[in-house]
Design a binder for these strands. Structure first.
Lengths: 205, 205, 205, 205
DNA sequence: GATGAATGAGTCTTCATTCAT
DNA sequence: AATGAATGAAGACTCATTCAT
């Protein structure tokens, strides 16, 4: 077989990644054997190993791909004009996560939990995830800055970073909670945040 | 041979669990071998297996123990009188998690991430965790109810459940964020929540 | 199973080594699979690996054992009194090698050739062999010294080291030649050496 | 496609053989993969396989080529006129081996050790080597005959074959010793042989 | 009760060789 | 003629668990 075209290569890669994703989800990262993935991909062991260097390389690729996919879906929310409100942004992001998780049987939340666990062992994976979340948090902080600047009152004491960390916590916590307990819908959090505001500032009305 | 006393049995159990915890933390759940635990515990293979039925039983016990320990530490915060404020409660809980994680080299957050991943494979573990978080959330909901009832205005439209889910998200998200990114301190979240309140209700002052 | 006795341990070790030796001989070092050895030893994979750390550890042990065995057999020749003559020593050593090779189907010469090849890849093995041959050559040099001192004429210009190197070459060359060509018997070399002496010093009679 | 010329074919063959030799030397026979050789040769897998039928064919060719090369270099020593003396011949041959080994990073001695080990598995290789050494020994025997005939005294009891076997042992032993121990130079052996003669025939002076 | 040697199915990965293009 | 992607049968080694002593 002569040199394969780039599209074909990419398609094969996707095919393997796809198989891996499905297996990881169904069985967990470690319980999935390379043989599972190989069989699911419909290729041979050698072929799979010619596209990915090792099982952990495959894990890394699977997680990275998920993260990128999510990233692409979420990006528009940050560039919306006018800037979304706090509750709106939170709701839209969690909705995106939930929707991304529902399609095709892929569950981003499961992948996330699996990946976080793996993160404790795999240096590269941890670095990758760290980078992703950091970039995501930076976008949240930037949005927080816009909220702050557009606020009528003087809100100079507000820390965009703290706001970003809080929002990210809400999102990550949503992932955990919905993956393990399964009874949290996206709107719960924005409603809850609203409620907290009202409880917190009772004399405001 | 004579039966050993109950205290001795309990001590042995703790000794093994301790060894397991240390190993799990250092190596991850799957990368830790029974042999690692056996050696770390200073007992024999047979002895360890007479206290725990299997590796997953050991994982379950280790996670359960961690959770119970944390639970005991957090409980007083819910029965404090007068009831803690939202920010105060959040700060105190995340502080407890962080402090619990810092001692002895045990890191509750790592165990949590590891356990969440395992949860996807181990039915029993998932049920256990689910139960724990459900109970925890119930306490949060109850506290939310108190906040609501003590509020001067009529806040009947507030859902205690939504508030609880939101608070739990914040806490779980704190665990993830600090385990993976490592740059989030407990106070960040309560400050961030404060900031969000101010951003959200600008005309309230 | 409680702690096994030292003799039993040694016996098991020997049993495995024995199996390995037989396989290595029949198939070569690399063509022998661990499974071959495991089956031949009558033990399980785990058992074999509890006695030897790896295949190359097994190779090293097999070679070392052969070398030690030969060493023990040859030692008396060096402490013989009176000191053996050149031809006698050479003949007795090569005879020992040949005899050692004939018993039980073990062939020291094959093991030697196999080991030498492996030596090019395995640092530890090379060091071990190097050490063994160096010690052996030292004994040859010492014997050469005795020959020199007992000689009636002044032979101060003789280098014990060169003599030792030459004798070792003859012995190693015997191993190669008899392993590959198979038609060299021990006596050939001492006769040939004799002949060379006569050819070399024709005017000596 | 047009047939390529014979010279081109020969050049390609040499190119592959060259690559193989380099790899074998660096890594050993078994540790070298066909892929190593393919990459080193700069050709494609298919191309390499169109010149050599298999890996063992390549090994055989590599060894044969080395042997032939050495043979060509040594041949003149046998046809020298007048016939070289024993010590001279030995020194010149070992020097040739050493020199052949030093050039370009090729080490004939390593190849020899590697090949001898392989000989135990590969029938064809053993036969080839056997033939080569037999031819070489025949030349040594012929030279021994000349020494014998030219000797002033009656040396009819001398066996040319034994002399040849002894000389071949010295040469092969030199290869082993210098490959594994690395501290034997060509002159050592002829000096050592001289010394042995003097020790052996002390009353000859 | 306790021990720790033994089990053996299962894991990841490699690599000589082929053959469709 | 040439390419190089694909094959898939091994290979070395691990490890949760058991059970004879």
């Amino acid at each position: 077989m002569p040199k394969i075209s780039d599209e074909k290569r990419a398609a094969r890669r996707a095919q393997i990644l796809n198989a891996a994703w499905t297996c990881f989800q169904k069985e967990g990262l470690h319980a999935t054997t390379m043989d599972d993935i190989i069989r699911a991909s419909g290729l041979s062991a050698g072929a799979v190993y010619s596209y990915f260097p090792s099982k952990s390389g495959l894990i890394l690729a699977a997680v990275t791909t998920s993260l990128s996919g999510l990233s692409a879906l979420v990006a528009p929310l940050f560039s919306a004009s006018p800037t979304l409100s706090q509750g709106e942004l939170l709701r839209r992001i969690t909705e995106t996560v939930a929707r991304f998780s529902a399609r095709d049987g892929y569950d981003l939340r499961r992948i996330a939990l699996l990946g976080w666990g793996e993160t404790q062992r795999d240096e590269t994976l941890r670095a990758t995830m760290n980078g992703f979340y950091r970039a995501f948090r930076a976008q949240l902080a930037q949005t927080a800055g816009e909220w702050r600047r557009r606020a009528p009152n003087n809100l100079d004491t507000i820390s965009d970073d703290d706001v970003a960390k809080t929002l990210l916590s809400l999102i990550l916590g949503f992932v955990v909670q919905s993956a393990i307990m399964g009874d949290v819908e996206p709107a719960s959090l924005s409603r809850g945040l609203d409620d907290l505001v009202r409880l917190r500032a009772p004399d405001s009305v």
